[in-house]
């Protein structure tokens, strides 16, 4: 059913730390590995050994540069389904294959009823839905629904494959609807934000911004100003000079 639940009991989602992501692609490949055998199986590859290799992936990592010159930063930017609260990808679906779960807010595609019309990919601003050219249906992040509730896995493995694989702890999984959850506290502490909030889809996943650089954080007012603000007496200028040297 493509009508959205009025509210979900939980808002399960990811918190992605852009400060610690190093762009190693471990989450990308572990996602592909799990999901090509999981709920979304298969994740097909086109021309795997040919001139134009491409395939269905549910999680991709971009690298961006932000800022210029010495202030420029290289930021690795994982991008997957944000499990929005009001996802247009669900409501546009003509078959009801796309749906948002009332109990945990996860957005899923039913692989048995999807007709591969691709309209949901047009409706998603985040590029989270990918068409599987071989399977003929849409594939998307399931938040590893077949791991997080899977009692045959050990408790520490009941997390999305991407979170489990991240070597730097840049990915966190939890209930963003619960203000007391670890992920909610992390978002509050680090100023986690939404992507493209102006489109109004209310993404559940949050991104943590890169921390300010230490050099930026400790930049002080230029000492020369302190000198010019002094009364100009030799003693004052001497102290100002000492202050400058010591604070350099």
């Amino acid at each position: 059913m493509t009508a959205l639940p009025l509210a979900t009991e939980k808002k399960l989602g990811l918190v992605i730390d852009l400060d610690t992501c190093v762009g190693c692609q471990a989450c990308v490949t572990s996602c592909k590995e799990w999901n090509t055998g999981g709920y979304s199986a298969p994740l097909s590859d086109e021309q795997p050994y040919g001139a134009d290799p491409h395939g269905a992936w549910l999680n991709r990592v971009h690298s961006y540069e932000a800022g210029d010159g010495a202030k420029g930063r290289t930021v690795h930017f994982p991008r997957s389904c944000l499990h929005c609260e009001t996802p247009a990808c669900v409501t546009v679906c003509p078959t009801g294959a796309s749906y948002k779960r009332g109990e945990d807010g996860i957005v899923l595609v039913n692989p048995d009823t999807c007709i591969g019309c691709k309209l949901c990919s047009w409706a998603c601003p985040y590029g989270a839905r990918e068409y599987d050219y071989t399977d003929g249906i849409m594939k998307k992040c399931t938040l590893c629904i077949d791991r997080i509730y899977n009692e045959t896995l050990s408790p520490e493995d009941r997390q999305p494959a991407c979170v489990r694989a991240c070597p730097t702890g840049a990915r966190h999984f939890g209930d963003l609807g619960d203000k007391e959850s670890a992920v909610s506290k992390l978002v509050a502490a680090r100023g986690g934000y939404d992507l493209l909030p102006e489109l109004g889809f209310k993404p559940t996943n949050k991104y943590l911004p890169p921390r300010p650089r230490k050099v930026e954080a400790t930049t002080r007012a230029a000492p020369t100003e302190a000198i010019s603000a002094s009364d100009g007496s030799p003693a004052e200028r001497l102290f100002a000079w000492v202050d400058k040297v010591l604070s350099a």
Binding site: L18, G23, V28, D52, P53, H54, G55, A56, W57, R60, V61, H62, S63, Y64, E65, A66, G67, D68, K71, G72, R73, T74, V75, F77, R79, S121, P125, G127, E130, Y131, Y133, Y193, D194, L195, L196, P197, E198, Y207, P209, P210
Partner: peptide, 26 residues
């Protein structure tokens, strides 16, 4: 792109490397 990535507070944003060498479905 600044709003899409949320990185505008650092400065101008531009892609450095795409996630895949060949174009994907999107």
């Amino acid at each position: 792109v600044e709003s899409a990535t949320g990185l505008g507070s650092i400065g101008r944003v531009r892609p450095l490397e795409p996630p895949h060498s060949q174009p994907n479905f999107v």
